[in-house]
Design a binder for these strands. Structure first.
Lengths: 204, 204
DNA sequence: GTCTATATCATGATAGAC
DNA sequence: GTCTATCATGATATAGAC
């Protein structure tokens, strides 16, 4: 029966995502995934031949989910400062809902960087197009002149890093006060937007 | 003989650092550490009773090395903008020389956050003192008013994240052009300083 | 498709000779 | 202190019954 099959496969993917995302490829155990899916190890290998393949299914799904967020915004016709604000909003709300993504991607990217190229080209993300748009805006005097690559890295850093470093914020700054930490993340988008716009003001 | 002992211990620590830092606690293999140190597994257990203990020795050393960098600068009597520039310089030069640190710390912090508290309190890092100094400067109108925690997070994000995300820069932006990537990192400190100072200008 | 039982292998750790 | 040989465990993966 197809519904039965799909159901189990869904449960496996869901369980695998949870385990891989918190433990990483190396730390994850097939037993734990099986337990969390309410089945046994043999079935995992029946649906996905190996741990490697199961992991790739999850990793690909997450990357597919997290990366192309920007692409749509970039290609719009809004003024550049508006686009920047939209990007910051999009990233932050994505990460508030999926705060585990940055740590997971960074961990696996540093473990085995080989798969990146395929995924990036697969989703056709062309960083060059971004540089171009930013340089136009600089030529027109809309924003201050600077290396567009540094600008993008600055923005993405401020959006993503606080989530990757969540344990540091949690323990060092917020002393495990979960509400305060959540409130901080909720403020992030507005703060970063204002900070970036301020930094980009052209002074006569 | 003591020199002999010290020599081997040094070699083990050096090898363990390399392996742990690239593979992480879960991915590292005692065999690989032994090979890289030019000895055999049994000796690892002779010097450090378990993989766990060996890891803690390395992790502690790295944290000790990376964290307190700021503390000294904070407590000086320079104007706040100068301190900010010094912090950015200190972080960036540290990370250019040890680019693996951010990914390693983030990975292990997310794997097992429990050890942080001890280390932080051990080195007496008091974030509250930082907020205070920044708020004074804001009261005096030296820099624009904003939540000091967000400000610090912004700065640290821009300093640290580009190193944690090195594979992304390397593949997506710089297409494996190592010289271009190195040049980019070399520019980082100046770019970030200018960006932050710009963002903090008080407009009448 | 799902299970139990088992093969196979890798790894951390120890025993014991030198 | 350093080695070789070995143990014990736990993990991925498969065989085969239902």
């Amino acid at each position: 029966m197809e519904t039965k099959r799909d159901n189990t496969e869904e449960k496996i993917l869901e369980a695998a995502k949870n385990v891989f995302v918190t433990k990483g490829m190396d730390g994850a155990r097939m037993q734990e995934i099986a337990d969390e899916a309410g089945i046994n190890k043999a079935l995992l290998h029946y649906y996905f031949r190996s741990k490697e393949r199961l992991f790739e299914a999850i990793f690909g799904e997450i990357i597919k989910f997290a990366f192309p967020k920007i692409t749509g915004i970039i290609s719009s016709d809004e003024p550049v400062t508006t686009k920047i604000e939209q990007i910051i909003d999009a990233y932050t709300s994505l990460l508030i809902n999926h705060p585990f993504i940055p740590a997971f991607i960074l961990k696996e990217l540093n473990r085995d960087p080989s798969g990146i190229f395929k995924l990036i080209t697969k989703y056709g993300f062309k960083p060059e197009s971004v540089w171009g748009k930013l340089e136009e805006a600089m030529d027109k005097g809309e924003i201050v002149r600077m290396d567009p690559r540094h600008l993008i890295i600055n923005i993405v850093s401020m959006c993503v890093f606080p989530f990757a470093a969540r344990p540091i914020l949690n323990y060092v700054i917020f002393k495990e006060n979960k509400e305060a930490l959540a409130a901080f993340y909720a403020e992030r988008a507005d703060v970063v937007k204002q900070f970036v716009i301020n930094a980009l003001v052209v002074r006569k």
